[in-house]
Design a protein around this nucleic acid. Structure first.
Lengths: 167, 167
DNA sequence: CTGCAACCTGAAGTCGGCTTCAAGTCAAGC
DNA sequence: GCTTGACTTGAAGCCGACTTCAGGTTGCAG
């Protein structure tokens, strides 16, 4: 971490991209294997990235934050042009899908919050009646691992509970 | 899935708990190993759960949805009494911490949403100027894996980018 | 032109959160 | 009292998202 000069053309080395994106170089190579980003090579086989790569990475990171997997992010990314800035319409398509994803997640969280607040506010100690149990219904897009949970039997899904819980 | 009768006392078998919670029996055993839930045993060594266990599970699931790991959920759970319903105060403590967690996550998402909207609204195609890059700053609590990302060098962290991205 | 940081590769390791497997035991309805 | 499905265990496997390792190469400042 001594030199790391930009070089005269505006291609980034993997180290520079790492610094700027905040991702480890190993992660960047991993992303490349997955086809999320691409690099040209120097004659000596070293990767060189265009600055647009930062945009693609920002894309991926944002996608992860709204609960998408890297595979899903790739699908979205593949709709964008690789060698020029995306047009407004192209942007729009991707952004729209994110919008709804974000909205879903926000309302999910607000539902949870409301229920939690309700539990406290009303002083009722039974999660049963508060609906917190039922709040935990099918696979909210949030939370690590939450995706594939509670998705076992669509028909006779979680009925949660009934009765008192004074135990 | 033929019989599965409740039995005359209100202890649940692992199968019944599985049905009601929506978790696989394997997951329930796993939760037990982690100390998230507990069971008594029959003379024949089979697990029997009190219905309060459903509450603990609801806890865990909700915790996951706000981005907590199972370990973190356990910490919260351990503050609650195991053999009686939690008091209002006890509830309150846990709920409060969740409240802030949920709030954080909501504002995070809204920030992301606003920036995304801004990008579209203003027709600007450069994520740089929109700040989407910078939106992807340090480890938002959401998203799988997001936790341990972007946490490499607190001092010289992601500077993101500058300049045009017309590539 | 040398020395050293930065780069390369493929394979293996890690971590969280489970699931699957094999081989055996329990319990309840006929 | 037998049959059959639900249960038991420990060990191993899996998936996503990376990181680490070993051993070798590149490129630029001095």
């Amino acid at each position: 971490m001594i030199a790391n000069r930009p070089g005269r053309h505006d291609l980034l080395t993997i180290g520079q991209l790492s610094e700027r994106s905040g991702l480890a170089t190993s992660a960047l190579r991993y992303y490349e294997r997955l086809g999320l980003i691409h690099a040209t090579r120097t004659t000596g086989n070293q990767r060189r990235y265009t600055r647009g790569t930062l945009r693609r990475i920002a894309f991926v990171r944002a996608a992860q934050r709204v609960g998408l997997s890297l595979d899903e992010a790739k699908v979205a990314l593949d709709r964008l042009p690789e060698h020029r800035a995306p047009s407004g319409t192209e942007w729009d398509g991707v952004a729209q899908s994110w919008q709804s994803r974000i909205d879903e997640q926000i309302t999910e969280l607000e539902r949870l919050k409301a229920k939690l607040t309700g539990c406290i506010g009303c002083g009722c100690l039974s999660l049963t009646r508060c609906g917190l149990y039922n709040a935990a219904d099918r696979a909210g897009a949030a939370g690590p691992g939450a995706r594939y949970l509670l998705t076992r039997d669509p028909a006779t899904g979680p009925e949660s509970a009934e009765g008192d819980f004074t135990e």
